[in-house]
Design a protein around this nucleic acid. Structure first.
Lengths: 168, 168
DNA sequence: GTACTTTACCTGGACGTCCAGGTACCTTGA
DNA sequence: TCAAGGTACCTGGACGTCCAGGTAAAGTAC
């Protein structure tokens, strides 16, 4: 984080401006959207800080864990893309870097000549578990909310994702 | 959005895996963090879709609105960086593009020879208001939550941001 | 008043995200 | 069987974010 702490919350400030401009119906939604953006930025920064010494990023970590949880430790790019809910090229990008670090490898897909399988290496699996230990201890076990509140957040965000067509 | 809808929520799935691995203390936090990431991705996509016809992005829109709400319509880069809570180079980047589009201009800062002022042009102000109209109607007034839930989300995220040192 | 430190901004680069476009392969239907 | 359409992956590029490093000006201290 670079910026100094602020006396006034920019989001509260923006909401006040919205009200004053007669955009009251949109003020709360604007504040919610902006808060999500900012929360993501903060949480991602915390996560990446923990992962930096391991030379991982959250995107790459997620891919490693997806492979770790898969039966064979190998998945086609498309499958990974769907599960991670990112664009296929984002997966290609992550695989490039993980492959260069020896954490995954690309294999020919025996059942589909067009495709490849992204396969976890032993080093990749070991690093994924190490990263999980640290993330659990330093971020996930202390997100920064009162006990019940984490569940509340989860529930509201699930509703939001569902309404955005993210879930069935 | 590219990926097809999934039968199972990847976040629910991941949480189950966490529980099964004996990481129960971290499972809910992991789910919360992942949900924030995904929610941000979805909301940003909605916002950018509305802004695309105007050749704006959310980052640039936010800068335009910050200037619009400022007394003189002009701010130093550092001030904008602090208010928007992004790195100063992100502001430089946004200013480059907005300036190329004639929406802002760089002026010498009369009170500080090192600095510049980013000043809103009439075109920039007009576009900011037009963009706000559309964002209000198409996103902010219908975030996708039941009425009371938006307030709940806002309250929890504020708690999260405060605990991350984002607020005073 | 001069030397040291800090501040403001920029450049260059890494990374993740998406989109557009291209190639190789599979699938489908006549 | 074979042509048309769809799928899987990659490359190249745009964009936003951050970091590292550099220059110029302001502030501070002796």
């Amino acid at each position: 984080m670079t910026a100094p702490r602020l006396a006034v919350d920019p989001i509260v400030e923006a909401r006040r401006h919205w009200e004053e401009h007669g955009w009251s119906d949109a003020a709360e939604g604007m504040a919610a959207v902006t808060s999500i953006m900012r929360a993501q930025q903060l949480v991602l920064a915390r996560v990446d800080e923990v992962l930096r010494p391991l030379e991982l990023t959250f995107a790459r970590y997620e891919l490693l864990m997806l492979l770790h949880f898969s039966r064979t430790g190998a998945l086609p790019v498309t499958k990974a893309s769907t599960r991670l809910q990112v664009h296929p090229t984002s997966v290609t990008n992550a695989v490039d870097r993980l492959e260069a670090a020896g954490l995954v490898e690309r294999r020919r897909n025996p059942t589909d000549g067009r495709g490849i399988l992204v396969a976890l290496t032993p080093a990749g699996r070991a690093l994924a578990l190490k990263a999980t230990e640290r993330l659990n201890a330093e971020v996930f076990e202390q997100v920064g909310l009162a006990p019940r509140r984490t569940g509340t957040l989860l529930s509201v965000l699930t509703e939001l994702r569902r309404s955005a067509g993210d879930l069935a």
